[in-house]
Design a protein around this nucleic acid. Sequence first.
DNA 1: CTATAAGTTTAGACAAATCTAAAAAAATAT
DNA 2: ATATTTTTTTAGATTTGTCTAAACTTATAG
Lengths: 217, 217
Amino acid sequence: MQSFTEENYLKIIYHLSLNTESAAQTNAIAERIQTKAASVTDMIKKLADKKLVDYKKYQGVKLTESGKNAAINIVRRHRLWEVFLVEKLNFKWDEVHDIAEELEHIKSPELIERLDEFLAFPKNDPHGDPIPDKNGKLDNTVFIKLSKLKTGDKGLIMGVSEHSSVFLQHLEKVGLTLGKQIRITEITDFDGSVELSIENKQINVSREVAKHILIKI
Amino acid sequence: MQSFTEENYLKIIYHLSLNTESAAQTNAIAERIQTKAASVTDMIKKLADKKLVDYKKYQGVKLTESGKNAAINIVRRHRLWEVFLVEKLNFKWDEVHDIAEELEHIKSPELIERLDEFLAFPKNDPHGDPIPDKNGKLDNTVFIKLSKLKTGDKGLIMGVSEHSSVFLQHLEKVGLTLGKQIRITEITDFDGSVELSIENKQINVSREVAKHILIKI
DNA sequence: CTATAAGTTTAGACAAATCTAAAAAAATAT
DNA sequence: ATATTTTTTTAGATTTGTCTAAACTTATAG
């Protein structure tokens, strides 16, 4: 069983290697976990002793099979709690991250299975991220970034790849929320900003925003 | 803000002084918190520095006003989560204590208020214990122990004063659950055991059990 | 009222997780 | 290819909460 802190490291390493497919670097971990590189090195050694990560000095870390299982479990708990907070307690999608960050460390497997059932086995969290099932299986459908679409393309908003409060609040304000149908009406050559129609309204989003909106065609 | 550990001490001190109305003793705290007396002394000093308890060497501790507020808040969180676990996730009343023990340390006040609302502002937890409101106000109705009733007395089961799994499972098995109406049919002089009728059935409970069942006449 | 027992505190050590400062390795630039 | 910068690691200190063993208070029993 891992400590609260160990779990946080595993989760961060998991997220970092998802994006890069390569080993997570000490500094990158330190930045995400809000600590110093020296502390990360210490913890990495501990996780390596426990066979949760593979570690070679100066080469970063990768999760082992068992480290990855542990990480996916944490992700499952986090995302299930996010669903609970939004659907049952009426939190907004930009308010749930920090609370879920605490709830995710409560370990009772029974609790998580019952929560899953209570929520009717949701497939995705409020940001569209897939929820691993109890065997750790993850729906790995990859969605297309809004910024990759062409004029005339239609699709559904399925998720986001940026979870900061400011970003989510912005989407909320302009009406870009999960499940909505959109159609691209124009792409500005100059700055790559995207004009689209959604629920009979025309809105415009910058390329930077479009990069973080995930679409199913 | 208190640490996880400090919160546990506050909670235990609160419960110990409820029963005795006097200062909580070092050894009693140590036993409840599963640690050694020396550790308790250390922590007590820390809590005293933070003005959460009044402490005089060799004289035990009492919660200060602010320590008591903190403790009541923890109790509120614990009991609300117990209601959630039993009513929403279908746990049995003997299964929820340990999980609630973890959940109670999640601090977001917003979370707790929304949970309270989601649960429709329950007044009591699954064992009949009162849930402090958000201002820390506690319904201090005191119920009568089943063991104090006389033959012929009628009443409602309102709570228990013993929360162990074995005890609760026993009550469940013989049908002594919250809200049930009972009538005392006989009290055995010899061992003080109580014969009572509940839902047209006759059952018998030992004096020891009867002492921990709380009744409203 | 003293002797013994029970309960509490102190002193010093330890484990987990962190930090700073300095050293070492790897990456990059000229 | 060497110098410089960036990244990572090591060494040693710090904080939180714990422990053991010994010392000290208070309670209890004769």
